[in-house]
Amino acid sequence: MNIIVCIKQVPETTEVKIDPVTKRIVREGVKGIINPYDSYALEEAIRLKERFGGQTTVISMGPPQAESALREALAMGIDRAILLSDRLFAGSDTLATSYILASAIRKLVPFEIIICGRETLDGSTGQVGPEIAFHLGIPYATFVSGINQVADGQLECVRLMEDHYETLALPLPSLITVVKEINEPRLPSLRGLLRAKKAEIPVWGASNISGKIEFFGQEGSPTRVVECWHPEIKAEGKVVKGEPEQLAQILYETLKEKGLV
């Protein structure tokens, strides 16, 4: 069984730090990490391979430094990695990103399962997975929290909605996006680290994949970010110390004011 995992490198922290003296945004030392949900995607791919055999491939679209995220995935035990990087890909929204990823995946057929994370730490739209499925014309399921079985060309999985779980059956090939509950990602082994360090990671640009250039990057992106700002953290709250009974009294009165008790 061939499995493809899509991962994105995101900044380690979403906290935007401002230097108190120069008032500049601190850029140094913000490490890139694998998007947390994507670690679960990688782990699930490795487990499926351990159960059913086949090959695991990880792909990421991003700037050249995204290579380090791919090496981490190899260290966990993914078989091969491909980096999609080209100036023509820059400024992609989810429609263009999913189109580029799908165009690369077409070069990787045959595959049975594509696994994405539920959403990213930075853009956090959760749209890339479902849109890849559309471009490839395959079925998909979101928020998958467990895989029951894969047999007879079918994937049976459980997904988590707001207030209930659903069991779904998808014909293969198909795509799933996964949530944290699905597994606990392993740490890389020493052997994995060594292998990852030496591995060749091919870089594919626009000319290496199928697809039309006008659908790549900013040109292919219907949405535009026109304004950004940092919201202020409101600090008008009050913090009180005191005897527990006193504090309980304050809490009681607040709840009463709000009509709760």
Binding site: E15, S124, R224, V225, V226, P231
Partner: peptide, 15 residues
């Protein structure tokens, strides 16, 4: 909101 609520963005779809 993006970046865990640390950055607000305004987005339009013009064309």
């Amino acid at each position: 909101p993006t970046f865990g609520g640390n950055l607000m963005a305004q987005i339009i779809c013009r064309y």
